[in-house]
């Protein structure tokens, strides 16, 4: 199915994953994943706990060893495409008591572009401030990061990714345990990114909001269950395949309105 898209589309897709498998202690965490993400989509990656969503992102970004498979970003391997890729790790992955300020964390997004010896200067500072402004955090620039709320931490991470000015973004559960304001801010940023032609992959937990926020979705449970435009892919049948019987009590208000399909 994915190969068909290729033949009609001249431009390489934003992300092309081929036969990607990752194993922990020889137990598959993700299994033979083929994925084709066209440029300019907002894609949710959903699946139950332990389905390998974060593992998938980390494997694509070369952060953990793969057992097999390849990933191409705009037709290039990760080493060549590094400057095209932005990453928002899970908020809990760092020590928020680290002695540093919000502005400093955001500036870290530019470290990759600075060479050895070079320190971030005025120009980097301004870029970082601009990114902070985009997530409504400009007032917090000099705040120590331990004084931030969970949502503010998330927005700081988001700003750090924005400052990278990447083409394709990977976000690991940015919506996990954030307040409504932050959720709205993140959604606005996501839409803005899409308007600017960026591609965004988001590990997402809240099935209720998938249809509102994302135009593309990948259902993952160790294997790819389905992937494609949200309307066609986010069906109750696919959800059942992904979550098993558990989806039944997930959809108090029905995660998707199936009447039309």
């Amino acid at each position: 199915m994915s190969k068909q898209l290729d033949s009609t589309d001249k431009k390489p897709p934003a992300l092309l994953v081929d036969d990607l498998t990752v194993a922990y202690n020889s137990k598959p965490a993700i299994w033979d994943i083929d994925l084709n993400v066209p440029e300019g989509v907002l894609m949710a990656i959903v699946g139950p706990n332990g389905a390998g969503k974060s593992t998938f992102i980390k494997a694509v970004l070369n952060l953990i060893p793969r057992a097999a498979g390849t990933a191409l970003f705009y037709g290039q391997a990760y080493e060549q495409a590094r400057s095209l890729v932005g990453y928002v790790p899970q908020r809990g992955s760092v020590d928020w008591d680290f002695p540093t300020s919000v502005l400093d964390v955001v500036t870290m997004g530019l470290y990759g572009k600075l060479g050895w010896f070079r320190r971030p200067g005025r120009q980097e500072r301004e870029l970082a401030l601009h990114a902070l402004d985009q997530v409504s955090m400009a007032d917090f620039a000099n705040r120590q990061i331990s004084q931030l709320s969970g949502g503010q931490q998330q927005r700081t991470f988001l700003a750090r990714a924005l400052v990278q000015d990447a083409q394709i973004y990977f976000m690991d559960e940015p919506f996990a345990a954030v307040d409504a304001v932050t959720e709205r801010a993140i959604v606005n940023i996501l839409r803005e990114l899409r308007e600017r032609g960026k591609t965004v992959l988001v590990v997402h937990h809240d099935l209720q909001t998938v249809k509102d926020y994302f135009d593309w979705v990948t259902l993952l449970n160790v294997e790819v269950i389905a992937s494609g435009p949200t309307e066609a892919t986010f069906t109750s049948e696919n959800l059942r395949k992904t979550y098993g019987g558990r989806v039944a009590f997930l959809d108090g208000g029905a995660p998707v309105n199936m009447a039309g399909d």
Binding site: P28, P48, G50, N221, T242, G245, R246
Partner: peptide, 8 residues
């Protein structure tokens, strides 16, 4: 045995 363990 190995893939469907998450789908109980």
């Amino acid at each position: 045995n190995n893939l469907s363990e998450h789908i109980v």
